[in-house]
């Protein structure tokens, strides 16, 4: 599935907020066309790492490259779809108005915009709630609408920070199906998660702990290398807890 052409290159990146070191010398390559998972407990530095990729944080040391160009760059932002941990929606407005607003920020308009709105709402199964005010949405619905907004401008690269938090298993599966479908069309997807089970769904994984990268590989490789039956066990071995 992955063509081994690097789309993201993180080179010796470190980041500290004041004295607190959040990321320690991370180097990582993510290939075009893969679903890449960043797995780690909360506080491991996942969000800081993805925020750097979108340009919302600047590393203290090291460099990030997207599509072979150095971040941050406004030109590159257009090619990325980002979904933050918070839903970031305007509650007073309807779903449609939220979508129209964010769509036009990416230069979508008219019929093209309306067509995309219907497509993405179909993907997250919210079509019937299109004209409902967002403050009437449930937590899971908001999460899905937030995802729909990230998909709106058909980005080549999707960066999703904890996309399935608070979503029930049935819906979670349908969202993952949507990820595979987008991936089949060539979209590279980066997902952060702290749910070990969800990590198995990714093509490749990076394990993060206390700001350090402890392992990278496919789920099977990680399990084989550690003689583990699950990612959770593998994480413990790499984390040095079970060694």
């Amino acid at each position: 599935m992955s063509s081994h052409e690097s789309i993201i290159s993180i080179r010796n990146v470190s980041k500290a907020f004041g004295k607190q070191e959040v990321l320690k010398d991370i180097s990582l390559d993510i290939n075009k066309g893969e679903i890449f998972g960043l797995l780690g407990p909360s506080g491991a530095g996942k969000t800081t790492l993805v925020k750097m990729l979108i340009g919302l944080e600047i590393p203290n040391r090291g460099e990030n490259f997207l599509f072979h160009e150095k971040m941050p760059s406004l030109k590159l932002i257009e090619r990325v779809g980002y979904m933050a941990q918070s839903d970031a929606l305007y509650g007073e407005l309807t779903a449609k108005e939220n979508l129209e607003f964010f769509g036009s920020l990416f230069g979508l308009k008219g019929k093209g915009l309306q067509a995309r709105i219907h497509e993405v709402m179909e993907i997250v199964q919210l079509t019937e709630h299109l004209n409902k005010a967002v403050h009437n949405y449930s937590g899971g619905m908001k999460r899905r609408l937030s995802l729909a907004i990230a998909l709106l401008h058909e980005p080549e690269l999707l960066i999703l920070d904890e996309p399935t938090v608070g979503i029930d298993p049935v819906l979670r599966k349908s969202i993952w199906d949507a990820f595979y479908e987008l991936n089949a069309k060539g979209t590279t997807i980066i997902v952060t998660t702290h749910v070990m089970g969800e990590a198995e769904k990714c093509h490749r994984l990076a394990l993060l702990r206390d700001g350090g990268l402890i392992a990278v590989g496919t789920p099977d490789e990680l399990k084989e290398n550690t003689n583990s039956s699950s990612i959770e066990e593998a994480f413990l071995v790499y984390g040095g807890v079970n060694a």
């Binding site: 980002y82 839903d87 964010f102 990416f106």
Partner: peptide, 14 residues
């Protein structure tokens, strides 16, 4: 506080 500012800034908006 709702994170929409972050979302605006992760779009090409200047």
């Amino acid at each position: 506080t709702t994170g929409t500012l972050e979302r605006l800034l992760s779009s090409p908006l200047r």
